[in-house]
Design a protein around this nucleic acid. Sequence first.
DNA 1: TGACAAATAGCACGGTCGTACTATCTTGAT
DNA 2: ATCAAGATAGTACGACCGTGCTATTTGTCA
Lengths: 203, 203
Amino acid sequence: MSKGAETRQVILERAFEIASVIGLSGVTIGRLAEETGLSKSGLFAHFGSKEALDVAIVEEAARQFVQEVMVPALREPRGEPRVRALFERWTAWGERPGGCFFVGAGAELDDRPGPSRDALVRACKDWVDELAKAARIAAREGHFTASLDPEQFAFELYGIMLSFHQFHRFLRDPATRVRAHHAFDRLVASARASAPALPARAR
Amino acid sequence: MSKGAETRQVILERAFEIASVIGLSGVTIGRLAEETGLSKSGLFAHFGSKEALDVAIVEEAARQFVQEVMVPALREPRGEPRVRALFERWTAWGERPGGCFFVGAGAELDDRPGPSRDALVRACKDWVDELAKAARIAAREGHFTASLDPEQFAFELYGIMLSFHQFHRFLRDPATRVRAHHAFDRLVASARASAPALPARAR
DNA sequence: TGACAAATAGCACGGTCGTACTATCTTGAT
DNA sequence: ATCAAGATAGTACGACCGTGCTATTTGTCA
């Protein structure tokens, strides 16, 4: 790796840490330069614009997420174990300092169109697809019911993860971990059941 | 209402709108002054500091939330209908321009201690408590199983709401509304069941 | 090792931020 | 109608933002 690419990587790792804690807009050129020991202009030259820096941070986040969550989980056996591993890895990722980068950045960018939002949406969609795919495989393997709606499963699993994040990082509820695991077990149990367990809607 | 309190209210309503869309830190004194037709200093005098303005915005958000979500839902009959009304009102609230203020602000402030974070946490906890209380009442009324854990119910319901927000506002998934309602129906159905439907954990 | 390219620093600019301080206008009670 | 109190405007300040331009240092390869 050339010298330039090397420092660029160092910059991005630090930028990702900061962005996880105080958000993407909290990553300022001046501050980042100070923390990496570079000059403002020296650092700036690596990216050319703040927008490009933001995109690079999102890509760095996606890279780390794949490496620390997806890859290890996909090494687990197909089916329910893999689904469980995805969940476990995700909650561990969400307990890093600053919490899950994507949760924070998602809230920050949801109304700000642009390349960084696009990159972030792409990463999140990939993640949702991965969850749905794992559920689909679990159904095919016979761990989950064949009538399972994998996208619906992913939607609800995502909700548990977001709730985990909210209660853990924001409300600082000490019961959060137990609650999240309980919710996950309930979700998996209902996915196992052969009947979809959806009686006629009340009212 | 005196003149001062009147303009203060006008300011806060506009500030709340902006904060819902671009976040609390997106509400700048200059911009807010421009949009309300006041001078920077004239506006500033109403609050004394940015921090105090932030707190006031959070309180305004809580006020509107109570008025538009809580109060109407609490007029519904006790039990499941009220739980359902809380959910319906909340999703409607989350479809306002900018989405749910509390979701955005929560992600923004989760690592920034201070009075605004405190105010926000208080409002969110009140909301969670309200959800749990409604579930507890539904159990007492016989709509839900007596063995229901109301706090767990609130945790999972909150997750559905957060997932709704994420898929709707950020990922712009057109199936979101259906997914959220489906998830809600499943949650309510399992709360109705007499058995807790929680088999021994796999693995 | 010398030369060319890449990487980094220095400096300046216009803009916006939050916040003082002071002056002017409005309101409301007497 | 008066006059203090309250509400609003004017202006200025230092800090930091992103970004351009020009040196200077450092790395790389013939």
